[in-house]
Simulated scan of single mutants.
Amino acid sequence: MSAALLMRAQARNNAWANHRLLTACVALSQPEFEAPRTGFFPSLRATLNHILVIDLFYVDALEGGTLGPAAWADPEPCKTLTELHPAQAAVDRRLMAWCDTLTDGDMGRLIHVHRGQRVQTERADRLLLHLFQHQVHHRGQAHAMLSGTAVRPPQLDEFYSIAEAPLRATEFAALGFTENDLWQEHA
């Protein structure tokens, strides 16, 4: 598998896992969404907003933007799941679109990450790996928090299992891609 194809697959897995987690969270009441919970961030709302804010920061940098620390000026820009789910889906689509342009030769492309008083220069492949790890880390925390509610946490780690194929096809369609699209090498 090429590195570019792997990054496209990771971007889609990321979008799919966010979609599954946020879809499950819709069953929470607003007080349950805001309730104090054990984790790095003190609630599901804070944790899921953190994922969004950091995605906005890094996706902007990948796209050549200069948003920088302004991304986290409001650490919880989405007060409700009704706001959060489409906002996360939008940044996930941007990340997938960016990854769709990649070739293996682009993995070493330098990305300029604006951090206020300085600009960090990072290779595209390393920045993407960091971003995907960040997502998994905090989604895992949100998943654990959700297990402390009456809402059953969704399966997030069987992206390509045969058993998940029918549900996965429906969810992928809602996200705008198919499994066949996923495994196609782009020019």
Score class of each variant (00 low, 15 high):
1 M>H: 07
1 M>E: 04
12 R>Y: 00
12 R>L: 03
15 A>N: 07
17 A>W: 02
18 N>Q: 00
20 R>K: 15
24 A>E: 01
30 Q>F: 03
36 P>M: 06
42 P>N: 10
42 P>V: 06
43 S>D: 04
55 D>F: 12
56 L>M: 14
57 F>R: 07
64 G>H: 13
65 G>N: 13
66 T>L: 14
66 T>K: 14
69 P>W: 10
72 W>R: 13
77 P>M: 08
80 T>D: 00
82 T>P: 06
87 A>C: 07
91 V>R: 02
95 L>F: 01
101 T>M: 11
101 T>Q: 08
101 T>C: 10
104 D>T: 01
106 D>R: 10
109 R>T: 15
111 I>Y: 05
114 H>Y: 11
114 H>L: 11
115 R>G: 10
117 Q>W: 09
118 R>T: 12
125 D>N: 09
125 D>A: 04
126 R>W: 13
130 H>C: 13
130 H>I: 06
134 H>F: 01
134 H>R: 07
134 H>L: 07
135 Q>S: 09
135 Q>R: 02
138 H>N: 05
138 H>M: 03
140 G>C: 02
141 Q>E: 10
141 Q>M: 07
143 H>D: 11
150 A>N: 06
160 Y>N: 15
161 S>F: 09
163 A>S: 09
165 A>W: 04
167 L>W: 14
170 T>E: 15
172 F>L: 15
173 A>V: 00
174 A>G: 08
175 L>W: 02
175 L>I: 02
177 F>S: 05
177 F>C: 02
179 E>D: 14
182 L>C: 11
